[in-house]
């Protein structure tokens, strides 16, 4: 199963996205890596690395990011991990991607299919 890591500057946003998506897909491998070690606003490479490792498998991991340093910190976390194949940072809305991604990964979607889903999410119209 493709793992999902949610990286937000806010611990609450990351955890909230996990809560929301888990309601739809309780079996998904979904983990939050939001905020700093002390809970403050920011992104923390060590937290992101630990989160990736906790859901890592050869099926791959997708990282959903909010903005700015979430992208850079995720890139560095990937570079610093000894096992880092098939880990992708996704450029799509974080909450919508958490929900659609969790549903899709829980039914066993491949990395390829997951990437298509995030493209769809990017174009998704709410009304």
């Amino acid at each position: 199963m493709v793992g999902i890591v949610i990286v937000s500057h806010s611990q609450k946003i990351a955890e909230g996205a996990v809560d929301l998506a888990s309601q739809m897909a309780p079996d998904a491998k979904l983990v939050a890596a939001g905020g700093m070690e002390d809970g403050g606003i920011g992104t923390d490479i060590n937290k992101i690395m630990a989160a990736i490792e906790s859901v890592y498998s050869k099926d791959g991991v997708v990282i959903l990011v909010d903005l700015g340093s979430a992208v850079m910190s995720s890139e560095m976390a990937i570079e610093m991990l000894p096992e880092n194949e098939n880990i992708k940072i996704i450029d799509a809305p974080i909450i919508e991607s958490s929900i659609f991604g969790a549903v899709e990964s829980a039914i066993g979607a491949s990395m390829e299919r997951m990437l298509e889903v995030f493209e769809e999410v990017k174009a998704y119209k709410k009304f």
Binding site: M36, G40, I41, G42, T43, D44, I45, N46, G68, S69, M72, S73, E75, M76
Partner: peptide, 15 residues
Amino acid sequence: LVSTVGGASGPLYGT
């Protein structure tokens, strides 16, 4: 710096 700054300046100054 990479692991303690928290903002974009962490990865940037760290790198």
